[in-house]
Design a protein around this nucleic acid. Sequence first.
DNA 1: GTTAGCACTCTCCTTCAATGAGTGCTAACA
DNA 2: TGTTAGCACTCATTGAAGGAGAGTGCTAAC
Lengths: 343, 343
Amino acid sequence: MQMDERKRKILRAIVQDYIATAEPIGSRTIARKFDLGVSPATIRNEMADLEDLGYIEQPHTSAGRIPSDAGYRYFVDCLMDPQVLNDEEKEIIERESTKRIQQIQEVISHTSKLLSELTNLTSIVLGPHKAKSAFGKMHFLPYQPGQVIMVIVKENGVVENHIVDVGENITAEELQKVAGVFNQKMRGYSLDHVKRSLLHEIYSELSRQRHLIDNTLDMLSTILDDSEEEDRVYLGGTLNILNQPEFKDLSKVKTLFKVFEENEPLKKLLHPNQEGLNVTIGGENTLKEFQDCSVISANYKVNGITIGAVGVLGPTRMDYAKAIAIVDFMTRSLTEVLTRRRR
Amino acid sequence: MQMDERKRKILRAIVQDYIATAEPIGSRTIARKFDLGVSPATIRNEMADLEDLGYIEQPHTSAGRIPSDAGYRYFVDCLMDPQVLNDEEKEIIERESTKRIQQIQEVISHTSKLLSELTNLTSIVLGPHKAKSAFGKMHFLPYQPGQVIMVIVKENGVVENHIVDVGENITAEELQKVAGVFNQKMRGYSLDHVKRSLLHEIYSELSRQRHLIDNTLDMLSTILDDSEEEDRVYLGGTLNILNQPEFKDLSKVKTLFKVFEENEPLKKLLHPNQEGLNVTIGGENTLKEFQDCSVISANYKVNGITIGAVGVLGPTRMDYAKAIAIVDFMTRSLTEVLTRRRR
DNA sequence: GTTAGCACTCTCCTTCAATGAGTGCTAACA
DNA sequence: TGTTAGCACTCATTGAAGGAGAGTGCTAAC
């Protein structure tokens, strides 16, 4: 059995209606709502075929049909009219992107908020990859006796500050020397690379100033441990899923929210290593908690290098056309903003 | 009608049992579970009195009694056995407080997490008050052409960095001068005070270097706008409330979580301006969303000055003795840690 | 003052039947 | 041969009815 034009029309009608109403749809309703020029009986026959093909299913005998994961997949791949954002939405995103923003983290968190507001879904944004981001420059500033502020500027523009213990008798000049060594040896290298290859070199360089080495050990581990830390995941609009009828069951909400508290599974959802825009539908998700959810995700870049990912998460019954359009536009905008920042 | 010893015993029994089971409790059950030496009938008579006094109420005629807000209040004020933490709990908190912590923000967020874990309630922690925190010192570091990193050290130990536009032709010496003026004029004063009283003085000082003033204006507004920003509120264990039977209704959860997304109402809950430990029960909360919740809150200090507040939020049916003990111990520990950091 | 006994109330649970939406099948039709 | 009308059938949902159970307040006896 093959898909023909009429089957496609009917499948599209089912998916669109189910996305809009969240109610199973029957043959009579399709005939009434969508002008296909055939009677409910004919539609019934076609629906039986579509069910055989695995594109739709029946919650129970006397209910209408709903799309299966495969049905959504077919819809996304073949049936969907690609959508472009309306001017209002574009303007909102663009207004946001022209704001004077100080730090990359702020850009990311705004993005997350905006995504969830525009889609009415839950947004997941993966911040810049710490261990992979290149070390830029290091500075020391006085803090209080025995401690200094270590300011680290990454090449992607992120600025971090750490407070480190140095002991009371280290001098400003000595700190200068330490910073000099770090800056000279590590500039442009990712922290991953430092840890794997450069540690020895830095030590041997510093060991000429024997009494410095204990302190610098601490500093290095501060920097590197920090890079070990989870890359931050920004969530937005988690409450939006409470509006979806598929989550009127509290226990579902609970398991989902529990996963939201952990970073690792969320990262996985975004396929941060896959290029381009990805649509993952229902059971295609590897995590069982998300098997009735779909995820639209895409990467953002700085200077052509992928540094993070954004996505939206919602029930499989989501408005794919709109969500895809928004995620797509958003990653482009984000890539542009971040690249612009670096001049 | 007066409270006598037996009435107190019965009220205590009702509150304790209801806290443990979340089920209305009847006279027969009280007689069975608690060894009061009287029959259910006697207890019934006393319960009728307690209801007249407003300490307990009946959800409906044929159900047992549950404590009213006034009942909880009486329990907390007069009946409760004050609890001390067990060694395990103490150890957990103390282990946390001896960790090497870099920044005050981390201490606060750990506190929030710990509070919610120990109490199984939702924790709310109000970070250090920005506008009221005193300016300490300012430094400039190079960033990229036309922008510099402005590092600000508050007197409470908080370190912030901002990126500011300065135009391409400002020199390092000029920045030094600007920092000098800021440091000299603002040190030790709260940003509130700077905004109210010192702005003029700083401008007139800087106007000697005419061409600097535009840039410094920007910097000042960066600092001061930031102080306008919401003081951050840290929430922990929001999912814990989903385990409470009183929140099995999704719409309740939704309204509550909606409030969680805003800072202002949460701050109000903590009574950050009230000294000592506060217990706010049910209807005593001014926000209608929280009228079936109770809040235990207390202030923490640095060097004797209140700079923030912590609290736990749960259903009125919470384990007050335990929650109070934990919040109390936690604020003391936090105060101690933060004071120690400053040496 | 305390207690046993009892009628009464009200929620909760189960059962049962009616309703209605939707289907698949068959036979008639173009 | 594809389309349609008609019809019997299925099954979730709704609401009513009735019984069980928990708990109360009142009365009378101790």
